[in-house]
Each structure stands twice: as C-alpha cells, then as structure tokens.
Nucleic acid binder design. Structure first.
Lengths: 141, 141
DNA sequence: CCAATATCGTTGCATTTGCAATGAAGTCAA
DNA sequence: TTGACTTCATTGCAAATGCAACGATATTGG
C-alpha cells in the first residue's frame, strides 16, 4: 500500500493516454485548419446530426453547454456554421453547417479516419477490447 | 465518409472516458481532502519516489512544469509537502512529503485502490487489454 | 579562466474552463 | 389567464492552463 505507482493507476493511465492522443490529433488540424478540439467536436456532430441545438450537442458530446455555445460562436464567426432560430420553440437555436463547413469537414474526416486507423494498428489485438472498455465506461454513468 | 460518429472515434472515446473517470474519482477526495488532481498526482509521486525535483515530476507524470510548480506550492502552503534546496545543484528543489503529507496519502490510497478495483470489476475481461493498450499508447511516443 | 549555452523553478500573460446567474421563452396547473 | 416552475442559450467571473520569458545556477568549449 505504501508503494503505489501512478503509472499503474487506471484513471491516471486513461487521462495521460487521452491527453497524448488528443494532442497528437489536434496538431494535425490546428495548423492546417485553425480549429480547436471543441470546434472539431461541434463540426463533426453537426455533420452527423444535421441541424441541432446547443443542448443537443451538449448532451451527446460530453461538453459543457457554455463550451458548446462558445465553440459554435467561433465557428459562426469563421463562416463554417450558421445559427437560426428554431421554428416553434424560440428558445432553441438550430446550428447547421454552411457550405464552407461541409467542405471543411470533408477535408478533415479523411485525416481523422487515417489517424484512428494508425492508432488501432499500433494497438493490434488490444484495439477492440479497448473500444469496448471505453464504451462500457461511457454507458455506466 | 459523410457519416462519421464521434462516439466511434477513438480519440474522442478516450477523452470522454478519461474525463468521466477523472471527475468521478476527483469527487471522492475533493470534498473530503480538498485536493485537486494535479495535487493528487504530486502527492502520489512523492510518496512513490521520495525526495524529487519539479523537473522529475514533470517528466514522470505528464504535467507541465508550471503545473507541477503551482501544485507543489499549494501543497507546501497546506502543510503536506516541504521544499528544500538540493545539495550540490542549487537550481534544483527537493520536494518531499511532510508527516501530514504521509498521513494524507495513507488515507487516500485505499480509496484509490478501491476505486480502481471497482472500475476494473465493471470492465471484466476487457480490463487487462485496456491497461495494455493504454500502456502502449504511452510508450509509443 | 571565461564567455556562450543549457537547465531549473517560477512567474506573467493571454486563453480556456467550469459553474452560477441571467434573461428569454415555454409549460402546466389552478 | 395568470403565476410558478422549467428549459434554453448566453454571459460574467474566478480559477486553471499552456507557453514563453525570466533570473539564477551549471556546464561546456576554447
């Protein structure tokens, strides 16, 4: 008990590995496309889900709603996203990709797919159990 | 390609799972002991390694050296850590646990061990491949 | 020996973050 | 209908973060 190595502690291992992977991935598109991780998440979710609200993204993508709101606003300023009032419920804001936003996502997605494929390749047969374990952690909430 | 679900993207899964686990674990000791994650990491590493420098912790524990420096200073102010000049190289600072620091670590470590055991129990047979995969991610770099 | 260079811990600063509060809009029950 | 309550997105603010710069100390090459 008196000897306890942080590097064998699962919460630390998870945090450190996640930080490393995120940094590596972020480098690939920050320089080229100028977007941050929160912005990347919003873009991808909009591409996947169409016109959705801040609340929806917040619920699906593990981001505080203020984080979503600010990331979305930066994307609006950059011309990748447009904001409309929701028909029927005027509290909601519909976010959707602009043509430029679609084009940007189209350029980034192949990079993301390649990145993930390379990562899985280095993990070999542990890749799928890793994904299962992460999914279980997210489900067991 | 046009359909790409963030929830199947490994970097996102890692980040989200890590954030969830860290939040859950941090709740267990923040209320009771009043320490943050960076402070927890410094405490555990000092317990494991004895008297070490800021640089050493920075290298071993995936934290920016300014983050280590500030966490260490908070722990000094709280009475858990003491700072001494290193004999021989006066650029270095030796950080070491005080008696209170050792007592605090002694109370937290069982909680950490229990937390990890519960987490591994929910993961079942995917637990070990998960650890292997995370270790490989940390090595490969 | 000494001048250039490197390393260490701290600090300044701009940015990001989480949380709470706000105002606007919707819901519901009396 | 109205008044209390809920939900939504944004914003204010304090704290945390990453990065670069700094002063102090060590090391190294000539």
């Amino acid at each position: 008990m008196t000897d306890f190595d942080l590097n064998d502690f699962l919460p630390y291992q998870l945090a450190a590995a996640a930080a490393r992977v995120s940094r590596a991935f972020a480098e690939r598109y920050r320089a080229e496309f100028g977007i941050s991780i929160p912005e990347w998440r919003v873009l991808v979710h909009l591409n996947h889900a169409g016109a959705v609200s801040v609340r929806e993204i917040h619920a699906r993508v593990d981001m505080d709603k203020s984080k979503v709101s600010r990331a979305a606003q930066r994307l609006v300023d950059a011309g990748y996203v447009e904001k409309r009032g929701h028909a029927g419920d005027r509290r909601l804001v519909d976010l959707r990709l602009t043509a430029e936003g679609h084009a940007l996502v189209g350029r980034i997605l192949p990079i993301a797919a390649t990145f993930q494929a390379e990562l899985l390749a280095t993990l070999g047969e542990d890749g799928m159990p890793l994904k299962r374990a992460l999914t279980r952690i997210m489900e067991g909430k």
